[in-house]
Design a protein around this nucleic acid. Structure first.
Lengths: 216, 216
DNA sequence: GCAACCGTGTAATTCCTATTACACCTTCGC
DNA sequence: GCGAAGGTGTAATAGGAATTACACGGTTGC
């Protein structure tokens, strides 16, 4: 019971500090956020921060790396929902757009890129956990379709990159232009996805022609 | 005249300071470069920096914004060299790859993104001068081809975005993974370009057969 | 119930760097 | 040549923020 209480207290404090740090880093950036501000908002104290995370860098890693989620779960969810490749890709596009391009995620990318100048390993870790893993998930998806006999106009790796590049590029644009660089509308997203589907050779013609194929 | 002499001396000092600042910013980032280091390498003095640029921010703008070049000149050069759309696109791909993905340019993007957290206008200015302008140049190119009667599988704007996204995305990957994220080879570049050309409907079939068979 | 202990909060400490103030020297008009 | 003007170099100034040292209070084991 006491251990639980201690643990809970510590964990709650830790959670509060990480949440506060995350919010402030996202809002102001890493360099321009002081540990004082973080503990002021979290309600903890400086000593606690140093006990839990060692130094400011450790806190950054905890605040940024821990919640770094990749899109592979989105890919899996979209595939499990079933339907034609075209439908699946449309679904992925919508979820990627929502996931990668909300302001928090964009801010996180900005923080990591800023930090990458002095801490390369940190940046690469983030990249591996987000973009690279998502790319792999997409590649596996295209491979699966390929193995099922769908004729793709390119290797799974190439298609995965091409598909993902749009979103990465949008993140980049958003990071620098803050919404004024590109007008991101559902129509635009739809048109881009349609274009990709046709380019990959996954258009309706193909999926409708598979009347006798064993989908299940 | 005296103005010329003054101007020349001042200009040379200015050039030296800007070059030094640029090199150090690229090497260490903006925040981790001190004005002392800059003047030490440039040979000038702190007072000169403040007289010429006002403060550190002004020096950053001079060092980053002035030499910011977009890819529109590369597009123009590739078009003037003539040939089929396919040949032109391959040429642009090679020059874009060389231009956007050398380490200096990538470092510049990183600096701007880092700064974008506290100075949005600066980042947008850089974005407008590089990515946005390049996108416009590509869009004009596709528009020209469209006006000449080529059947494109998408609007000029869409094609421009799709083509450019690859390179922007590569810059992003390079910024975070430092060469270990993607193996950029000439073969990969070629395959990607070929894929795009086929997707856009600019393959050899089309370009060799521009007489009037627009049956899709 | 008491004393030790560990997490917590506060107050220095220390270093770094942007910015400024001041002294010097080159250059130019006359 | 000479005096002034303004660029140039150096030595403070000042402020901020990471890190550390120290004092406090609740909790636990005996």
């Amino acid at each position: 019971m006491t251990d639980v209480a201690e643990c809970c207290r510590l964990n709650r404090r830790r959670q509060a500090i990480v949440a506060s740090a995350r919010a402030l880093f996202i809002e102001q950036g890493y360099e321009h956020t002081t540990l004082g501000e973080i503990v002021e908002r979290a309600g903890g104290s400086l000593a606690t921060v140093y006990k839990l995370f060692g130094n400011k860098d450790g806190l950054l890693e905890a605040a940024v790396l821990e919640p770094a989620s990749s899109g592979d779960e989105l890919v899996r969810a979209a595939m499990e929902a079933g339907g034609t490749p075209s439908a699946i890709l449309h679904r992925i596009a919508v979820s990627f757009d929502a996931h990668f391009l909300n302001s928090e995620t964009v801010a996180l990318f900005k923080i990591v890129i800023a930090r990458s100048m002095s801490d390369r390993a940190f940046a690469r870790q983030f990249f591996d956990r987000t973009v690279a893993r998502t790319r792999s998930a997409l590649e596996r998806m295209f491979s699966t379709w390929h193995d099922r006999g769908l004729a793709l106009n390119g290797s799974p790796g190439l298609l995965a990159e091409f598909f993902l590049d749009q979103f990465v590029s949008d993140v980049h644009a958003e990071a620098m232009s803050h919404g004024r660089g590109i007008a991101r509308t559902p129509e635009r997203l739809n048109a881009r996805t349609e274009f990709f589907i046709a380019a990959a050779g996954l258009g309706d013609r193909v999926s409708n022609d598979t009347t006798g194929s064993d989908r299940r």
